[in-house]
Each structure stands twice: as C-alpha cells, then as structure tokens.
Amino acid sequence: MTNPCARRNDIFCENLDAETIVYDKAKDRAHSLNRTVMLVWESADGQRTVEDIAAILHRELGIPADRHVVLLALQELEKASLLQEPVPVEAGPELLSRRQVARKLALAGASVAMLPVIATVLAPTPAMAASMITQQQAGQDLTTVTGQAIANPNFLVGPEAQTAQADLGNAMLDFSTGNYNAEIQQLDGVIQALGLPPL
C-alpha cells in the first residue's frame, strides 16, 4: 500500500475552534473537517505510513493508535476528493465500518466525537443560490397549473382569459428553455388571473 498523500492544490483552509473549513476552488466545494480527519489530512504527505499517522492521532488527540481510524478518515477524504490518489485498501478485514470504528473508540475510552467526520456543500453560482427550483419541481408546477387552468371556465372566456393564456404559454416556453425561475413567475400570473389555489 502506498502512503497516503493529501491534495493541496487549489485549496485553502479556515480554522474554527474544533473544525477546519477546507475550500476546494477546483471543484467548488466546501468541507468542514473535524479534528481527527483534519490531522490525517495534514499528516498525509506521501512519506508517512498509515501507522505513522495513527501514532500522530494518538499523540495529538489521545485516541488509540489504531490504523482503522486512519483508514476511515482516508475514506472520507477520498470521497471529498482531498487525496491525490485513492487509498488502495481492499474491502474486508482492512476496512471497518464507521460503527465498528466507533465501537473500538468507545471500548478504548475515547469520545465518539473523535470519529472522522467531513460535511460537504457545493458552493453555488449566483443563479443556484437564488433559486431552489429544479427541473422536476418546475415540471410538476407546470403540470399542476395547466390542469387547473384548463378545467377553469375563465381560462377560455372571461376578463382575464387572455392574460392567463399568454402567461401559460410563456411558462411553457420558459420551461422548455430551462428558465425555471421565469416559468414560476409566469405560473404565478396564471394563478392570479384565474384565482387558482397557490402552488
């Protein structure tokens, strides 16, 4: 097994009290690493073995010098794309589940809070941050409003018929071009014109 090596290019860190925020500019993701996994990431320089890193965890955090804790942390780091190379560990006796590692820590008197944990979010684009409307939701909303509009007598004749028809047509056009925010606004127009129930 080659020694683990952390990926550090296009990355910056911000330290909190007990966690570290690791921001990956290349993948536009932000991770929150707890102390255990952060120490593994910092120690993974391609020179140190898993056992070396386990000894560092023992020295710095007081948890048992157990390679399974390091392997679990490396798995988490690999999922977060924070390693240069995947850790070549075969499933089986070498890899323990999170629950099994937690049990080992507990039996050794260590806090379960020392289990390696990474939380990850995608850094949004401005448009993504602005709206949570997905294609699926936009499609459902369009289907709902279309069904209700067609069943509504005011859709064909009535003071707001032209407005409702135009807005529904525009909503369909916006949906077909992937402009879901505009589509929802158009559907709001149909709802208002016909007095339909809100989405």
Binding site: D28, S32, V121, A123
Partner: peptide, 20 residues
C-alpha cells in the same frame, strides 16, 4: 457544529465562487 453552521450560510452565498 460551528463548521456545519458556516456551511449552511456558504451554501446560500451568492458570490462564493468569485470571492471564496
């Protein structure tokens, strides 16, 4: 946790990619 709280805001930040 404080880290999760920060990520909650970051996931809704408008210009995070430009000014990470």
């Amino acid at each position: 946790t404080p880290g999760q709280t920060l990520l909650t805001l970051l996931a809704n930040s408008v210009a995070v990619r430009r000014r990470s």
